[in-house]
Nucleic acid binder design. Sequence first.
DNA 1: GCCGTTCTGTGCGGTATCACACATAAGGCG
DNA 2: CGCCTTATGTGTGATACCGCACAGAACGGC
Lengths: 239, 239
Amino acid sequence: MTSPHSPKQNHLLATLSEEEYNHLLPDLDLIPMPLGWAVYESGGHLNYLYFPTTSLVSLLYVMESGASAEIAITGNDGLVGISLFMGGDSTPSRAVVQSAGNGYRLKASVLKTEFALGGQLQHLALRYTQALITQMAQTAVCNRHHALEQQLCRWLLLSLDRLPGNELLMTQELIANMLGVRREGVTEAAGKLQADGLIHYSRGRITVLDRPKLERRVCECYAVVKKEYDRLLPSTTLI
Amino acid sequence: MTSPHSPKQNHLLATLSEEEYNHLLPDLDLIPMPLGWAVYESGGHLNYLYFPTTSLVSLLYVMESGASAEIAITGNDGLVGISLFMGGDSTPSRAVVQSAGNGYRLKASVLKTEFALGGQLQHLALRYTQALITQMAQTAVCNRHHALEQQLCRWLLLSLDRLPGNELLMTQELIANMLGVRREGVTEAAGKLQADGLIHYSRGRITVLDRPKLERRVCECYAVVKKEYDRLLPSTTLI
DNA sequence: GCCGTTCTGTGCGGTATCACACATAAGGCG
DNA sequence: CGCCTTATGTGTGATACCGCACAGAACGGC
């Protein structure tokens, strides 16, 4: 069976009333979002707002030294390109597809007129942005205070929540880039999790075997973020 | 000479057109913002939006362990209480006055009607929020990759930019809480900066003696944030 | 089935920061 | 002035993570 594509695979779009949804529908274009694609670059101009459905997009900052760190992650729970409606049109960060899949895009001009009307789309976009802010804040806190292993757990759970299934296609090298740590550190932490039967991984494929255990091992940051997403975007219940 | 209080000491308010400013003026109440006052608590409901003029407000998150970390800082450049117009009405973080002074407050109900009109206030509030997001993102990155001394420089500059004068009333203990590090670490880093003649401090009073040198010693994060504030809020030129 | 590439495992010395324990110093106030 | 509180300075050992170097293992194409 082939899964039929629908904008409603994106929870934000699925939350719109039928009326607003149908109004937007003609302007939503299905697009593939391939691994590694930079949805936008630091300081770059955006022409579209993106609604991921089966893909995962990381917001990250790349330093002068080349080191990087993830600021937040988005999938079927949200949208990519908040600067379009926040008014800046660009940001110092990059957005990169971390897990290939699909999404829908909306022309910036359409979005802007729609947003200015002050309807549900505006309302949802702003609430989503607040949830995103919480994620970023918690990332800052987590970077400061928590051990690598806990951060890895948080990252796994946040990513999994935004994808169908319980599997992630991601090398430890890539995860290290996201967390802003050494690859060896991820190897060690992931090794422990695997030894304890929480996950299984092999050459870029990570499977979560025991999610409850993972949730007991993660730091408080995950729950704070999850709770805030649930509160702000109620029907955006993650998969 | 006594400095006359005016809402225009807040750069956001000063950027409004005379028309919108005068429209808002009757609803702006001058209030003192004493040191340590929690403008809002984690999860707490907000009744007012605050525009600091001579005070400094930290957005911070306090962990279960009691450890804390600053997420962002606001002063005469912005406003406190974005969740009011973002739609969430509360956030998991706290906002605490770090440097006593004054500010103006606006009733939540007034703000909400004003915001819904889609005028300059909405426009400015959203652009400010985007700048704030940049600050939070950069805090996350800085926490991950930069040494304590550089973070201290960043913190000093960001704070100073949001206050009149070149002096900060702040103990090393408090700074440590903000940065989420030990007090001893701050003592050591600040000691070096003082030995090199960049700053002078004594019992909770820090004076910046050589700002150019400080700017050469800070990590890139400061410039990224400053540039983004200048870009998004042009006439909000900091003191 | 072989071989190159990619991914993961491991060991080593270095360093920043940690937690804890005190020592010193600088005001505030009687 | 003398005393108490608060702020800052310093030392010691522990630890988490770093950078680097290289070994082993799994897959993919020929």
